[in-house]
């Protein structure tokens, strides 16, 4: 039996300096929890947040959820110390902000490997992801996505990107090219793709409209800034009962055809080819991992 599908639908942002949020966020059960040491932490609290996240990562309750830490850029006075702290504390994934080139990932990987060796952590066990926040990052998305075997995903960060593009957030058309570029890079590299945050936490309809769009485009999930958005997102990503029923019929037809040595599969008079069977298996795997849409 194959391993359950690894879901990364929701990546919940938490300010690294907020003790209450860090102590309790696991109860919301996002797929990934991202402790932020960068933009959500003021300059005067960088030292405090780093130590808070260092200790929080070791709490047993966080061993059951994928932990991600957004460190400060390695070009700042904080980045390298952030990295020392979180790799030693056992973080699952380091998220590099403002990634413009593959060399940014190479520099990060070299430091991670040095720290792993220093502290006795298995080399290669710290995974990486990159946030794309500029035109340069979007143009170089493919090189960034394929820069390291440690990469598990790339994320588009909308606000910095639209500023760099000299525009502002609107109906989503301003992100169209960047979303497609990041997504294609991720798919080519066989890693996950994460969409931007939706900042109006009181606009559920707007949030779900954006989720429907990015799901159809092919994103794995979305960065979130409020726990209220988790259930909405997970439900929107869950297959419907009808979709799962159809997927099961497709897989059954494929297995029947294979047992009879037939090359062509037919279901309800429609020809079913290999990509459709593969998609059906993915729908079933998603349903097994997430449950059905309610």
């Amino acid at each position: 039996m194959s391993a359950p599908l690894k879901l990364r639908r929701s990546m919940l942002f938490l300010p690294g300096s907020n003790a209450a949020m860090l102590s309790t966020a696991y109860v919301f059960k996002p797929d990934c929890i991202m402790f932020d040491l960068e933009d959500a932490v003021s300059l005067r609290e960088k030292d405090s947040a780093r130590l808070l996240v260092f200790h929080t990562l070791k709490l047993p309750v966080y061993s059951r959820v994928e932990t991600v830490v957004r460190i400060n850029s390695l070009s700042t006075p904080f980045g390298l110390t952030d990295l020392e702290a979180v790799v030693r504390a056992g973080v699952d994934v380091v998220r590099l902000p403002k990634t413009d080139t593959a060399d940014d990932v190479h520099a990060l990987e070299a430091e991670v490997e040095r720290i792993e060796t220093d502290c006795g952590r298995a080399v290669g066990s710290t995974k990486l992801m990159a946030a794309i926040e500029s035109a340069a990052g979007v143009v170089n998305a493919l090189a960034i996505a394929t820069a390291s075997k440690r990469m598990i995903g790339i994320a588009l960060a909308g606000f910095d990107y639209v500023m760099d593009m000299q525009t502002e957030r609107g109906d989503g058309s301003e992100l169209f090219y960047a979303r497609c570029a990041v997504l294609h890079a991720a798919r080519y590299a066989k890693i996950d793709a994460f969409d931007v945050v939706f900042s109006d936490v009181n606009d559920d309809a707007g949030f779900l409209k954006e989720v429907e769009l990015i799901k159809r485009l092919g994103f794995n999930g979305k960065s979130l800034i409020n726990p209220r958005q988790i259930d909405l997102l997970h439900n929107a990503f869950a297959p419907t009962e009808e979709e799962v029923d159809y997927a099961r019929r497709v897989v059954q037809a494929a297995e029947t055809a294979e047992s009879k040595g037939l090359g062509v599969i037919s279901l309800g008079g429609k020809m079913i080819d290999a990509p459709i069977v593969a998609h059906a298996r993915l729908v079933i795997a998603r349903a097994n991992a997430s449950g059905l849409r309610t």
């Binding site: 003790a19 860090l22 102590s23 030292d47 405090s48 130590l51 808070l52 260092f54 200790h55 929080t56 070791k58 709490l59 020392e84 702290a85 030693r88 502290c119």
Partner: peptide, 26 residues
């Protein structure tokens, strides 16, 4: 009502800010 890990983190931060030469290793 802080957890033990928060107590450690805040105390270490205060010490880091209150000493001349921070020499603690990880």
């Amino acid at each position: 009502g802080a957890l033990d890990c928060v107590v450690r983190a805040r105390l270490q931060t205060a010490v880091q800010r209150g000493v001349d030469a921070w020499t603690a290793d990880w």
